[in-house]
Design a protein around this nucleic acid. Structure first.
Lengths: 261, 261
DNA sequence: GCAAAAGTGTTCGTTTTACACCCATGT
DNA sequence: ACATGGGTGTAAAACGAACACTTTTGC
């Protein structure tokens, strides 16, 4: 009933049957975006058995036609080290990809269908995170030359079940955003009311009424006028708001009596 | 970066770093219950390293005092076979425990903290299911001599992080039940309106107003009068209802516009 | 006839929706 | 002066909360 492990060749031992994949959401004028990772084809090749028969390879391409592409895109992820918490590892991945710490990060669920990865059995745990565009460029890190933002509506073909993971991340995000004040993580530190409305509209994929939306926001006491305004815009400058971290913490913990929809 | 697996001694190869644990909810007059599994102490002993030092054992008992008990309770679970879908395996476990197929079963999430199991690194994927008391006893199976129902308010001390898994199952169930018509899975095929209200009251842990509750139920068109009544009760006999599977399917898929709270 | 649960409507306050015009700014 | 997005209030409808009495049945 057990495997016996007799050989390892690394300082960091990893669990070869468990990985983590991160759906990293960003937001700007163009809408909601996802940070994707371009897979090195050599790495891919190494996942094949050394002496794969041509029949095996044909089957691979049939099931995973994405591997015929020159460039293969995926979520940013990796195998879980034996000596690291799952959540910690997800944080670390996020740091590797973005250089950011203290980012909103939540588990989606475990994805464990049998054929999700060719040739090996890997169960992956999906996470999603929301990041603030002020910090997008802080550290497009060493590791992360291969990373690129994609508009949610213009995703490339993704490998494995990563498309599904993104879809489920969106569903989770939708649920979360309606009852918890998390949309703010996608905004710069100071933002316009129109921007936060647009975050909600994009995530929930529906137009909302400005007046009603602002009434709801006002009622939750989450926003503070920063005193600043938009600069140099060819129309009346909007006030910039920040959100009140204490109220935010309270709302986050207390479950929430407001609902944005 | 990889383990090499050189030895196996079973037909079914399992992933030794991934398990599934099931929170099985049942319901009757006494309220919401959970089906727990009594662990064989020998099995436990085998999880210790063969030559554990007395210091190691002291530490084990310090971190996991539950193992000092004579009887150790846990969720019903097991390690994931390499050649089986995660969801399929959860279904199979549920079948082993209850003899039931086609049961409402949902993933909670992956639990992956480092120290959740002593001595080995095991990430577990939690599932919860709701079962109908009509079928509780169909097959208290071969495997399942060690299974016993516990009232949610009177849980024994559980091993590992299983208490936490149950708590999170409850949270998920609460969320689910408010927006999706799943409470019905906990009831017999024909049930009284009072019973369904009581399901909601127990799960959400609050008293509800009978008239308002029934108005909401009526609006969703989910219930059908079965024509039958309670028998031999010392008061006015209640009508028995069934739920309309077609409406149920529709509500389940369409997301839900009603909300029970 | 009485104990025990079933069944049923109305009122009131709150929340949600729908909707249109003037304001400030840069060019 | 005009184009662009910013900002604001009110009325009608829908919804949720609170509440009490009559009915049916077995004993």
């Amino acid at each position: 009933m057990e495997y016996y492990i007799c050989n390892k060749r690394q300082f960091t031992m990893i669990l070869n049957s468990v990985s983590v994949d991160c759906v990293i959401f960003g937001f700007d004028k163009s809408g909601l975006r996802v940070l994707l990772n371009q897979i090195d084809k050599d790495v891919l090749r190494r996942t094949l058995p050394a002496q794969a028969s041509s029949e095996q390879i044909r089957q691979l391409y049939e099931k995973h036609p994405v591997f015929l592409n020159d460039i293969v895109w995926s979520l940013f992820g990796g195998h879980v080290p034996e000596a690291q918490d799952l959540d910690e590892f997800a944080k670390e991945l996020l740091f590797q990809a973005t250089g950011l710490n203290d980012v909103f990060l939540q588990q989606i669920r475990a994805f464990g269908s049998l054929q999700r990865v060719p040739y090996t059995r890997v169960i992956t745990v999906g996470y999603y995170s929301l990041i603030n565009p002020d910090y997008y460029h802080l550290k497009q890190s060493n590791l992360a030359k291969s990373l690129q933002w994609f508009n949610l509506n213009e995703l490339p073909v993704l490998c494995f079940d990563h498309e599904q993971i993104i879809q489920e991340a969106l569903i989770k995000l939708r649920q979360e955003v309606m009852y918890h004040p998390v949309g703010f993580h996608l905004l710069p530190d100071k933002f316009r009311l129109t921007e936060i409305q647009s975050v909600y509209e994009v995530i929930l994929n529906k137009k909302m009424d400005t007046r009603n939306f602002r009434k709801k926001l006002a009622k939750m006491n989450l926003l503070v006028d920063s005193g600043e305004k938009q600069q140099k815009v060819a129309h009346r400058a909007a006030k910039l708001y920040q959100f009140d971290i204490q109220v935010y913490q309270k709302l986050k913990e207390e479950g929430l009596n407001f609902r944005i929809e």
